[in-house]
C-alpha cells in the first residue's frame, strides 16, 4: 500500500472510532473538535462515515431482507427483488388485506405502551409551521392549519388531528413511536415521513426508512422510502404510489412539489392551506399536476392551479370546488 493510502486508512479508522463514541456520556468532545480542526480531510472522512452509518440504519430492513436471498440460489429476479416491483394494492378497511404479489405485510403488535407524559396539543395557523423536538432527538414539523397532540413519554405517542406533519424519527428500539390518525395507526422504526389527515383522507409519504400503516390490532401496509399511501373514499381503499423522496413534506420550504400527482390529491393540500374545503369535480379529479407551487399565505394556491390546468374554482358556502373549463 502506498503511503497516502495508509494515511487515508488511518483517518477513516479514527473517524469511525470517534463516531461510535458519540452516544457515550464519556465522549471527549473537545478531543473530537481538535481532531476535526487538525486537517480538513478529517471532517470529510467523518462526514462520509456518519452518512454511511445513517444510510445503513435507514435501510436496515431492506438490507436484512437481502440476506436470505444471498444464501439462496435464485438471488436475481426472485425473492427480495420482487418487493421492489411496482404494484397496485387494494386494501379495504373492514376486509383485511388483499395484496398483490410482493406486498410485504407486518403484524402490528397489540401492545399499548404505558404513557407517563401529559399530552400537549400543538395547533398552527394559516401562515406558520412549527418544529417540535422530542426528548430522544426526533423531530416533528407541523404544517400550516394543522393540529396534533403529543405525549412525549417513554414511547412517544402522537394523535394526528388534522392537517399535515413531518416526522423525523431517531431509531431507538426502546422508544417506538406510534401516530394515531382516525381509524389508523402509523408505526415506524427510525425514519422520515409526512402524515396528512383530513376528515376523509389519510396519506403517509415516506422519505426514508419504512413505516407500517394499520388499523389497531390489524395487519397493515408496509410503506417504504420513496412511496406514498393514500387511504380514502367510501371503501377506504389504499393506493400506494411512487413519491420522490426529496419532495416529501416540501411544504417545509414553503413549496409544494408535484410530479404527476392526481388533482384530487393536490386538493387535499389546497384545503389545508386555503383553510376551507377544496373539492374536485370527478370529471377532472384525474388530471395530473406537475410543478412547483408557492404556498405563501395560502390564498393564491388555487389561482396557481387554475393557471396550470384547464380548471376553474367556484365558491359556494365558503367551499371551493374545482371544475373543468374544457
Amino acid at each position: 500500500m502506498t503511503q497516502p493510502g495508509r494515511r487515508q486508512e488511518e483517518i477513516r479508522e479514527k473517524a469511525a472510532e470517534w463516531h461510535v463514541r458519540i452516544d457515550s456520556d464519556a465522549m471527549d468532545w473537545d478531543g473530537f473538535a481538535a481532531w476535526l480542526d487538525a486537517d480538513p480531510a478529517h471532517r470529510a472522512a467523518y462526514d462520509a462515515v456518519a452518512l454511511l452509518d445513517a444510510e445503513i440504519v435507514a435501510d436496515r430492513e431492506a438490507i436484512r431482507a437481502t440476506r436470505p436471498a444471498n444464501d439462496a440460489t435464485d438471488a436475481i429476479g426472485h425473492g427480495a427483488a420482487a418487493t421492489f416491483r411496482p404494484r397496485r394494492v387494494r386494501w379495504w378497511a373492514g376486509g383485511g388485506l388483499a395484496a398483490a404479489a410482493g406486498l410485504a405485510v407486518l403484524a402490528t403488535p397489540h401492545v399499548r405502551f404505558p404513557s407517563t407524559a401529559a399530552a400537549v396539543v400543538y395547533r398552527t395557523g394559516p401562515v406558520e409551521t412549527r418544529a417540535i423536538g422530542l426528548r430522544d432527538g426526533s423531530r416533528i414539523v407541523i404544517d400550516r392549519n394543522s393540529e396534533l397532540a403529543l405525549r412525549d413519554g417513554d414511547s412517544p405517542e402522537v394523535e394526528m388531528r388534522g392537517g399535515s406533519a413531518y416526522f423525523d424519527i431517531r431509531h431507538d428500539p426502546a422508544r417506538a413511536m406510534v401516530i394515531r390518525a382516525g381509524d389508523y395507526e402509523v408505526r415506524d422504526i427510525g425514519t422520515r415521513f409526512d402524515v396528512i389527515r383530513t376528515p376523509d383522507h389519510l396519506a403517509v409519504a415516506v422519505a426514508e426508512g419504512r413505516v407500517t400503516v394499520a388499523e389497531p390490532g390489524q395487519e397493515g401496509l408496509l410503506v417504504g422510502g420513496g412511496q406514498r399511501v393514500d387511504i380514502a373514499g367510501p371503501g377506504k381503499e389504499a393506493t400506494i404510489r411512487r413519491q420522490d423522496a426529496d419532495d416529501v413534506a416540501s411544504w417545509r420550504d414553503g413549496r409544494l412539489v408535484y410530479d404527476n400527482a392526481p388533482l384530487a390529491l393536490v386538493a387535499v393540500d389546497l384545503s389545508r392551506y386555503a383553510g376551507r374545503a377544496v373539492s374536485v369535480d370527478p370529471a377532472v379529479a384525474g388530471l395530473r399536476v406537475s410543478g412547483v407551487l408557492t404556498i405563501g399565505d395560502g390564498s393564491r394556491l388555487v389561482g396557481q392551479i387554475e393557471a396550470l390546468l384547464p380548471v376553474k374554482a367556484t365558491v359556494e358556502d365558503h367551499r371551493i370546488r374545482l371544475v373543468g373549463t374544457l
Binding site: 397496485r88 393514500d230 380514502a232 393506493t239 392526481p262 384530487a264 390529491l265 379529479a285 384525474g286
Partner: peptide, 14 residues
Amino acid sequence: TTATAGNQAVDEAP
C-alpha cells in the same frame, strides 16, 4: 415516471 391516466387508484411506478 410512467404515468397512466385514469382514476385515483392508478400507480406510478418508479
